[in-house]
């Protein structure tokens, strides 16, 4: 178990929080009501806060003299290891909620396991994040029920979002060679064990929300290996704009 193994393992977790946090931040000021706007921003702030804890740890582990911001802003697209799900756009409020719920359920299960990691930093971050994510899961789940079992229009929109985003769920449970190594050493989580309970949970909620479960057998993948969707380049050009335009400055 080298520091490098750990660093790459962290990318696989923390980049999800960063990119989803970035995506939700785009909505600040544009929510369907002020109350919902404020709630979504709280979720973004939680995710970005988690990201900072992980990246600070990466900076500690790294042999180079780097900061959390170097980790966040100065990698190339291939070096970001977030799943494809979190980079999907804010097409409408249904996509925002479904993406959030699909991620939150996984995120919660992952952190529950990570709390038992042999690594004390992972334990600490997981412990703190669990409270936040447990609220996110409730928020997105409650909204999904309202959209699914709301009006005709909201049901259609929610179903569309479920159908479109479903294909990105399987990737949540992919393990890279490095993930396996870190999990076997007792530091990381074997996410393959989460798959069955994950689908049980989201299937139950989708049913409660009177939505259909897609029967897709083909799933999209790639993010965990750095192969992203076309959206990722735009996310990064936005996010990295300042660092790329004005290299080596303090802000």
């Amino acid at each position: 178990m080298t520091n490098d193994n750990l660093i790459h393992y962290i990318y696989g977790i923390a980049d999800n929080s960063l990119i989803l946090g970035q995506r939700i931040s785009e909505l600040c000021g544009h929510g369907p009501t002020l109350e919902t706007d404020i709630a979504l921003t709280n979720i973004a702030l939680d995710l970005l806060g988690q990201t900072r804890s992980y990246y600070k740890y990466v900076a500690e582990l790294s042999p180079k003299d780097i900061s959390e911001d170097d980790v966040a802003f100065l990698r190339t697209e291939r070096e970001y290891k977030n799943v494809l799900l979190v980079e999907q756009p804010n097409t409408d409020f249904a996509y925002v909620i479904v993406r959030q719920y699909f991620f939150d359920v996984f995120h919660f299960m992952l952190l529950k396991e990570l709390e038992n990691s042999k690594n004390v930093n992972f334990q600490a971050i997981a412990k703190k994040s669990l409270k936040e994510v447990s609220y996110h899961k409730r928020f997105s789940g409650d909204w999904l029920k309202r959209l699914g079992d709301g009006t005709e229009e909201s049901k259609l929109k929610a179903q569309q979002a479920v159908n479109d985003l479903w294909v990105y769920t399987d990737e949540l449970f992919h393990m890279t060679a490095n993930d396996k190594k870190v999990a076997e050493a007792g530091y990381g989580v074997d996410t393959t064990t989460l798959k069955v309970p994950y689908y049980e949970t989201i299937t139950a909620l989708l049913k409660e929300a009177t939505l259909d479960i897609p029967d897709t057998k083909y799933f999209q993948k790639g993010g965990k290996n750095g192969i992203h969707t076309e959206h990722m380049g735009y996310i990064l050009s936005d996010m990295q704009y300042m660092q790329r335009t004005y290299p080596d400055m303090k802000w």
Binding site: T33, E35, T36, I38, A39, N42, R138, F139, D142, R146
Partner: peptide, 20 residues
């Protein structure tokens, strides 16, 4: 005060609006 569609959401919104 705040606006919410039902009591559950009102509680959640209150948490996000008034206890940040």
């Amino acid at each position: 005060s705040l606006h919410a569609p039902d009591a559950d959401m009102a509680l959640k919104n209150a948490r996000d609006v008034y206890t940040r």
